[in-house]
Amino acid sequence: MKNPFVPVPAVLEAVIDETPTIKTFCLKPAEPIPFRAGQFVQLEVPGLGEAPFTPSSSPFEPDRMEITILKTGLVTNRLHELEAGVTLGIRGPFGKGYPIHRFEDQTVLVIGGGVGLAPLRSLLFHLFHEPEACGNVSIKYGSREPAEMCFKRQHASWGERPGVDFTPTIDRPAEGWDGHVGLVTTLLDDLDLDREKTYAVSCGPEVMLRFVTWKLLDVGFPPERIYLSMNRNMSCGMGICGRCNVGSYYLCKDGPDMCYADIKDVPYALG
């Protein structure tokens, strides 16, 4: 078996500025890295360290991988300083990925916050590539301000797809913004969706996941239909190093997308 600690080298081909704090890194690995939407990889800056990220690109294009990253720590700060041409390392993929097999004939309610839209974009690419994989797709996306929205160049085309609606929101009013204002949870108040035929999939900061979950429960979603892309410190990626546990689950192996029904009784699961 392949040594799981040895990364695949990947050339950084381009860097796209998404927002002042978020960049998308376009990588060409030395060998294709097939992954399912929602699975994550460990991206390594040789000599510095590695950190876990879920690719934001299409799972149907394993030759190339895009990873959208917020500048927030040791590895990500260095990544943000890099320019095209350098070689990075990729280990993985790890984790289970989104439960796409459950989505057939179901509406998928996609709720993203900030850079949390990155893994969800990979899911959207999958659902757009295989329209029969699910019913309608409703996307709710919250950002602090218009300048902090990821993938702005794609929003219009998503909303124009048949069976897809896209609603962005910003936290506070901003000059030039005529869209919805308020936290992303405010978009969940008047959902015209059958709770028994919809799966909610959410990714964002932990505090957002907590309030989104409470809101979804409030408006009648059963815990079994809420999936959360959870955050923990994941080092090995294989469920053996110990630190990413949520109760008896290891996020790197059993997640990082967890069904709320499975974790609702774990103390502090959502902070």
Partner: peptide
């Protein structure tokens, strides 16, 4: 107990990744 963390150390001939014991 078998928890560990991975740490990368840069050296003259490249870098090494170490698995080091950790404590919960």
């Amino acid at each position: 107990c078998h928890c560990f963390f991975l740490v990368d150390v840069a050296g003259e001939e490249g870098s090494s990744r170490l698995s080091c014991w950790d404590s919960c």
